[in-house]
C-alpha cells in the first residue's frame, strides 16, 4: 500500500507500484488535467509538482512519490488564480490548450525557485515543454508578466 498526498488529499494505492504517476492521476483518480504527450519526458505535457519541484508524471512511478506531496494543475490554486494562471489568461496564451497545464506547472515551479527569471532563464526553464500550436512568444510573455505582478 502506497500513501501519497495529492493536491492536499491523502491517497492510497494498492495496485502495481510501478504504475506511472500520470496514469494513476488520470485513469485511477480521474485527475485528467495532466496530459499525455509523449510518455518519455520529452514534451512536458504531464508536468506536475512533487514537493514543489516540477516533475514529469509520465516517467515517475507511484512508488517514487510514496510519502511525498504531488500537486497537479487542479490543485495549483483553489480558485485557479495562481499568478501564472492569471497571466496566462491575460496574455491569451492557449491555442488548443492541450500543453498548457504542463506549461503552467513548469512556469509555477520556475517562479517558485526564481521569482524574477531573465528572458534566457525563462526560455531555458520552459524548453522541456513543447507547444505544437506554437504559443511560445505568449508563454514567455506570460511568465514574465507573472513574475512582475499580475
Amino acid at each position: 500500500m502506497i500513501k501519497v498526498k495529492i493536491n492536499g488529499q491523502e491517497q492510497s494505492w494498492d495496485g502495481d507500484p510501478s504504475l506511472l504517476l500520470l496514469w494513476y492521476l488520470r485513469d485511477e483518480l480521474g485527475l485528467t488535467g495532466s496530459k499525455y504527450g509523449c510518455g518519455q519526458a520529452l514534451c512536458g505535457a504531464c508536468t506536475v509538482m512533487v514537493d514543489k519541484e516540477a516533475a514529469r508524471a509520465c516517467i515517475t512511478a507511484v512508488s517514487d512519490v510514496a510519502g511525498r506531496e504531488v500537486t497537479t494543475i487542479e490543485g495549483l490554486h483553489p480558485t485557479g488564480d495562481h499568478p501564472v494562471q492569471k497571466a496566462w489568461r491575460q496574455v491569451n496564451v492557449p491555442q488548443c490548450g492541450f500543453c498548457q497545464a504542463g506549461q503552467i506547472m513548469q512556469a509555477a515551479a520556475l517562479l517558485d525557485q526564481n521569482p524574477k527569471p531573465s528572458h534566457d532563464q525563462i526560455r531555458d526553464a520552459m524548453s522541456g515543454n513543447i507547444c505544437r500550436c506554437g504559443c511560445y512568444q505568449r508563454i514567455e510573455n506570460a511568465v514574465h508578466l507573472a513574475s512582475t505582478g499580475v
Partner: peptide, 15 residues
Amino acid sequence: DLHDITVGKARYGAD
C-alpha cells in the same frame, strides 16, 4: 475555454 484550460478542466478526447 480559456479559464477551463488554465485550471485543467477543459475536456479533450483523452479526458
